[in-house]
Amino acid sequence: MANEISDTPSAEATSVDSSDLIISIKEMHKWFDDFHVLKDINLDVRRGERIVICGPSGSGKSTLIRCINRLEQHQKGTIIVDGTELTQDLKNIEIIRSEVGMVFQQFNLFPHLTVLENVALAPIWVRKMPRAEAEENAMKYLERVKIPEQASKYPGQLSGGQQQRVAIARSLCMSPRIMLFDEPTSALDPEMIKEVLDVMIELAESGMTMLVVTHEMGFATAVAHRVIFMDGGEIIEENTPQEFFTNPEHDRTKLFLSQILHH
């Protein structure tokens, strides 16, 4: 895995073939009423690339990745996901959402459905897969996140770590091209963080394109190609994890790193 990382050139170093770009964000701005939350965001993500986004609370990390599947709407600039531009067009949005998986800090499982129903729901209703096939498929993904034995339980009967793994399986079941993670381990007790990170690392090894908002430096160093640091709605710095953590350029990055290291 270390090999894989050092083999991968950083995005800026090579001029990338645009057909290889799976996400392309250009001069994107977003406001919440008159609060300018994202300022001139430019970000290209190549197929198979894994990016970790970090930054202080309120810097706009969640808002940025939520713009990618249009849970939030941007007001200026362009966002192109897998060749489709995000506009008002509802059809485009539904297509993109079915190809972009998202994992939330609070899991957001559906509490009135069993684990198996949670995972099989979208393939049945969005992909129109026959129920039996969808459930068989769902079991495969539950095995992949190592909780097939919980299939018939309700989310409320699981631990936080188990719930988050179900949430990951639920997204993977749609065979997404991109996975977005918004602080997937922040709501977990320390002893459960590892079981979730292990699943994410395995996913990374399978070549999934991933954008992960997290402060888990170990995870970033192990799997990320690039680390992006945000502050005040702007991308301040981006670099390989090694450079980013050992040799940050900006003062704000240094300050931020010293704060998370001292925790």
Partner: peptide
């Protein structure tokens, strides 16, 4: 979060309401 999870899976407005939102 329930609305967002349903949206993020690509469910349409009516499917999200029928399967996720209204039952709860």
């Amino acid at each position: 979060g329930q609305y967002e999870a349903a949206d993020a899976l690509g469910l349409t407005y009516w499917k999200a309401h029928r399967l996720i939102i209204l039952p709860q």
